[in-house]
Amino acid sequence: MLAKYLVRRVLATIPVVIGVTLITFMLMHVTAGSYIPGIDLNPNLKAEDVEAIKRYLGLDRPLYIQYITWLAGVGHGDFGRSMIDGSLVSSHIFDRLPATLELTITAILLGILISIPLGVTGALRRGSKIDHALTAMSVGGFAIPAFWLGLLLILVFSVQLQAWGLPFLPSGGVTTPGLGGGDLLDRVVHLILPATVLSFVYLSIWSRFTRSSMLEVLSQDYVRTARAKGMTERRVVYMHALRNAVIPLVTLVGLELPALVSGGLVVEVVFSWPGIGKLLYERALQTDYTTVLGITTFAALLVVAGNLLADILYALLDPRIRYA
């Protein structure tokens, strides 16, 4: 039963959610302690007033009560306040989230759409020059520092093209500031470089994976059955084999999500992309522990949710789970 499987998957994420939040909460306690964000901003408060506020906020209560209260807040989308300016972390997150989602989802789709045909080509022409070239490319792609690739692409496609008076790609931001910016084309043009960089590493991993998965599927008995029915090799590959080869890729993408979000942070910084990664980076430079931890909690939960999504997608693609 699909429903049963999904319930089991959801239940399995609960310990992970508790564990992740427990870790970030403990780190918060260690770093920020019972510091009340924004309390320094009011020089008129006396010590007993601070005590009263702490009592009011529940900071005098046992740690596990504080954790549960805090977790309930997280459940309601409250990720605490900045210890620098007292602003709500959640409002920052939700300001910056669309940009991050835009970049990450584009990179995932780009990575999948390019790596599947590359992997299939490699598998079908195993041992050929094309296959060797693709292997070399993916080995190389896996070793390039993403931030450096970003710098190089900016150097070539923004700086150099501009210097030569050619049309060039923007090196940062989501849209061109000021009037005339912000339409769809403008957004797409801004996405090209960061999305390319972010998907580059995964292109290497996923195309390799598709290749080996495809090779395995092509040796399966049911592929021989399909051939024996008398169909074109295209139909054998794209109708009968590909679906089986791609299903495990969904799991892999799900597993790579934490790394993707990590890579996203670096890319956001290089391309001044106003997402949550860049937000965390800016706040980290100001040693704003509460904001950094709030964002970390949020990002971890986002990854857990993404994993769950991958599991659901996997179940939908694989009839052995959907109709078990």
């Binding site: 399909a226 024996a228 089986n244 009839p319």
Partner: peptide, 16 residues
């Protein structure tokens, strides 16, 4: 037409 030895693996698992 040809049919094969192992019926457990000779049918494609993702199609009806």
């Amino acid at each position: 037409a040809m049919i094969f030895q192992d019926p457990m693996t000779s049918l494609n698992p993702v199609f009806r």
